[in-house]
Amino acid sequence: MDRIEQDVRWGTPASVRLRKPARPRAWGELAKHAFMILVCLLLLYPFALMLQMSVKDTEQIMYEFFRISSPYHFDNYARAWSEVGPMIKNSVVMAGGSALISIFITAAAGYGFGKLKFPGKEPLYWIVFAKMMLPGVMNLIPSFVLAWKLGLLNSYWAVILFAVGGAQPFWVFVMRTFVAGQPQELFDSAKVDGAGEARIFWHIALPLLRPVLSLSALNVFLGVWNDYIWPLVTIQSFDKRPITTGLAYLSSTHVGDYGPLMAGYVIASVPLFLLFAFGMKQFVQGLTGGAVKL
């Protein structure tokens, strides 16, 4: 009673006086964290299984599948590297080239559709947007015929150029939405100072797009790195094959020799781990920035 009289005397609102102190939801937080830990363990378990298989010979894999025991056959990695090393170089060239070309083209197109005025702007943008509705498998045969007519088969450009083209619709849409959401006064003030469109794009638009560009580069790089069907049908030379088709070929020729094959899979995943380790900050910024703008 004394507390209520004191609150009334000092003019404390009724909503504040009657509010109960919030109790920590300890059990709910515990269940949430336990579920997240369980999901992480389930996701990491196949990779842990692959790691322990990569240091075993065939006999250990067959009779001690879930057990890690000596001797450890680290020479599996040397054998695997001798075969997958050139394939990793090919994948880095294809995925890296696709990511670099894609982010520049999508950024320029997004800036053009978002801030510039030119004839046919809206119809052209909706044509690009409509391309997102087509399933990728529909483009397989027409794209193969086009690559054949252009003489791009059995070359890096067959993967790079068509990966860039496939990434355009979605990322042009994202870049355009992000650029259109920026204050127009920022670009108008640069024009008043005498800056041209190229300078505005390079010094204003690109720095603003940096988080989304990082997200786009990681997405395109990962997509090309893991792509299997398109490199399989366009690249015939073994010395130009990327890591996905190369490992599939090795799994058919090294039947029963799972140790070096698992070591090859581990080596193939290392560049992606490094990429995410050094680009995680930009990746998260791109996700949050894009979510806010979209």
Rank of each mutant, 00 (worst) to 15 (best):
D75S: 13
A130S: 15
I103S: 06
K121F: 02
M62Y: 14
Y77T: 00
T106I: 09
Y111A: 02
F65V: 01
G120P: 04
A95V: 04
W81I: 05
P123M: 01
Y63P: 00
R79Y: 11
M132D: 01
A80V: 01
L140N: 00
G85K: 03
M62V: 15
P119L: 12
G97A: 02
V84A: 08
I101W: 08
H73Y: 11
W126S: 08
S102D: 07
S82T: 14
F66I: 00
N76F: 01
F118Y: 11
G110V: 01
A130T: 05
P123H: 08
A99N: 09
L100P: 06
R79D: 04
Y72H: 08
G110K: 05
P135C: 09
T106M: 02
V92N: 10
V93S: 07
G96M: 06
A99I: 05
W126G: 04
A99H: 07
G120V: 14
K117M: 14
L124N: 04
A80N: 10
I68P: 02
F65N: 06
N139S: 13
I88L: 12
F104M: 10
P71C: 09
T106Y: 07
F118C: 08
M94A: 10
N139K: 02
K115L: 08
G114P: 12
L140H: 00
N76S: 03
P86F: 03
P123F: 08
I101H: 09
F104W: 12
K121C: 00
S69T: 09
G110F: 09
S102I: 05
L124Y: 06
K131V: 14
G114K: 04
S102H: 10
M132A: 11
F74E: 07
I127P: 04
F129L: 14
A108K: 01
I105R: 03
S82V: 01
A95D: 09
R67A: 07
P86Y: 03
K121Y: 07
A109H: 04
D75I: 02
F118H: 06
S70D: 08
L100S: 07
F74Y: 12
A78R: 15
A99W: 04
G112A: 14
Y63T: 12
E83L: 15
I101K: 03
Y72M: 06
G136H: 03
K89C: 14
F65L: 13
M62E: 11
F118R: 11
A99Y: 03
N90D: 13
V93F: 12
S69N: 05
K131Q: 15
F65T: 12
N76A: 02
P123R: 06
S70I: 00
N76L: 04
G114R: 05
K89Y: 13
R67N: 05
R67P: 00
I103Y: 01
S69P: 09
Y72P: 06
L116C: 08
K89Q: 14
W81H: 01
W81V: 03
